[in-house]
Design a protein around this nucleic acid. Structure first.
Lengths: 347, 347
DNA sequence: GACCTCCGATGAAACGATTTAGGAACGGAC
DNA sequence: GTCCGTTCCTAAATCGTTTCATCGGAGGTC
């Protein structure tokens, strides 16, 4: 009869075991897995029965070694704790699921070293492609990935004249929108709260802020930059304490924060220290995450189409993987200011 | 001379190419990769040079096929959009990084089908082990994973008499703490807002709420259950609208929400509809995510040690993977009530 | 100078699945 | 009864890496 390995044996069953149990050859088992229509119904059922009995689990390493391709994509996030990126990830997931691929999420947590380790590992895994919101889009490791054949799509950043696709939102414009709005509602001393400078988004939004300030003909020294260690709620709180420390004459009446986490921290610190928003300090955030609207004082924020950002990025990657005539594309979405009570509560 | 494949050839370089270029054998290249001390310095440098020149990237599929083990763990999250789970993930990441393993994050998004697809794929990938916050901890697929040799640790749930490790927080106790607190500050008509019932955490927290209610000798009909479709901010808002619709006589004066997302939604709806918190409605959340303290009215919440939860879970998994004398363990952490303005603002 | 040791390097044999060229069995038609 | 076409299945080669038994040579010892 068929040779049946001991149930619960330490080695898991292979196609060979299945073939032996079902009394067919290796190739037939493979056909059942990959081209079931080429196998007669009775044989197929016998093989499927054997697979179930043995608890057969296809070995993806062997499969992808032989075929040279995997069924996975990966998204390397800049900060998994920031809802903005998890929303982007959700958009990517949707597209990946539709295409029948699994999506692995990796978190670089803003650290180049971790990002590099993830990229190296993903490259060794031969994932079909990588989506990444990089710590630094000019990192040569990204070019190296592409040279060595792993398609990459940059999410939420761009690079001039690139050899890859990217999907971004115009952060300079976003910064302008925020500061133009603050100027419009009457502020003449504004703080830009962001950091670290190593993050491109932070630089661009600050640049947009400065442009708007200059175009309004306001003195540069009245646009203060408050640099944070990280774009987090805690940093926002800390920035709030530093603001209070400034002499009243020089203290800004409004703050534009590089993201909503900072803004929420700043908001909390401001209110809990007994001042009011926007009375003592108007606040504009960035990203318009779900929690922004639900904040102590609903937050004015620059909205990015985060879901579309993810979906579109994944679509570009899938096109690059599947379509030989693929052309690299740099998609830039337009941000939009959503004005709420944190700047409008009082004139 | 050495056979050098054309630079930028479509096939990426293999150890064989490296060996040819460096003028050594396959085995030597492998030794450079895995036991560099066994190779003389000059040979090693020559091989490393060849690897760099060819852009060699080790093929992890082949490696793990041969050795039978991978360098990856995975955490299947219930909801990547909920900061609670990303905080847990961060704890896991820390432990994984320390052990030199990569962590893949997968998001089941509360859907059994997606969870199942992820598990199947991870099993095929032969990951070293899986951490999971399951949609349903009694899902037979989990037992099947273990039977077939993939270690599993359940995160944030338990199961009686189990054949695997788990790390959880006592949700029944958490529910009691919340409701005992509400009773103590004087509420006699309370809503439990949670859902769907299919989620164990929701059931347990509700059960704890009922126990506390009964032990206080209060009539069961005064503890109303408001069921949500999902534990999200949007559901919280919707629940708020349903609460307003109740006749004043029967309307609860306080709400205990199954998590902070629901609580934040409820809080937002309550305030934006012109009522006050805790004046018209006191609110208790669950998880004590960072945004809870930063909310419109700082939220009273049941705190879970989410970082430790993740770290401990990963440690148990690593022990199971590496230690032959491993004993399964069911770790249960104790939650803690953090009282803030959303229940204390007024007596 | 013969012998032994040790170090470094070698080459073949796996790992488990897929693929492809080809072979057996079967049924139908003349 | 023979021949042909169709199904269905078999056997062997292959993917890239690791491992293990082995081998050659340099150096030391007597």
């Amino acid at each position: 009869m068929a040779i049946t390995p001991a149930a619960g044996s330490s080695r898991s069953a292979s196609v060979k075991d299945v073939a032996a149990t079902a009394g067919v050859s290796l190739g037939t088992v493979s056909n059942v897995l990959n081209r079931p229509d080429r196998v007669s119904r009775t044989t197929r059922e016998r093989v499927e029965r054997a697979m179930a009995d043995l608890g057969f689990v296809r070995n993806e390493s062997a499969r992808s070694l032989r075929t040279g391709s995997t069924h996975s994509l990966a998204y390397v996030m800049l900060d998994a704790g920031n809802p903005f990126f998890t929303d982007v990830a959700r958009g990517i997931e949707l597209a990946a699921e539709t295409a029948g691929l699994s999506l692995f999420l990796c978190n670089s947590d803003g650290r180049s070293a971790r990002e590099g380790a993830h990229l190296a590992h993903l490259q060794q895994q031969r994932v079909q492609g990588i989506l990444i919101t990089p710590v630094d889009p000019d990192d040569p490791q990204i070019d190296q990935l592409i040279e060595r054949g792993t398609p990459v799509v940059i999410v939420d950043r761009t690079r001039a004249g690139s050899s890859f696709c990217s999907v971004a939102v115009d952060d300079v414009l976003g910064g302008r929108l925020a500061v133009e709005h603050l100027i419009e509602v009457g502020h003449r001393r504004v703080a830009y709260v962001g950091g670290p400078e190593s993050i491109g988004q932070v630089r661009d939004r600050g640049e947009g802020a400065r442009q708007a300030w200059a175009e309004a003909g306001l003195p540069p020294e009245d646009l203060v930059t408050l640099s944070c260690e990280a774009p987090t709620v805690a940093s926002g709180r800390a920035a709030g304490e530093r603001l209070v420390g400034l002499p009243a004459r020089r203290r800004p009446t409004a703050a534009f924060c590089a993201n909503d986490l900072i803004a929420l921290g700043l908001l909390q610190q401001t209110i809990s220290s007994g001042r009011t928003v926007p009375g003592d300090l108007a606040i504009v955030g960035y990203d318009d995450i779900e929690f922004a609207a639900a904040a102590a004082v609903p937050l004015t924020s620059v909205r990015q189409p985060r879901h579309d950002l993810g979906r579109r990025a994944a679509e570009l990657l899938l096109d690059e993987v599947g379509n030989p005539a693929h052309q690299h594309e740099q998609v830039v979405f337009t941000p939009e200011l959503v004005a709420r009570a944190s700047t409008l509560g009082r004139r």
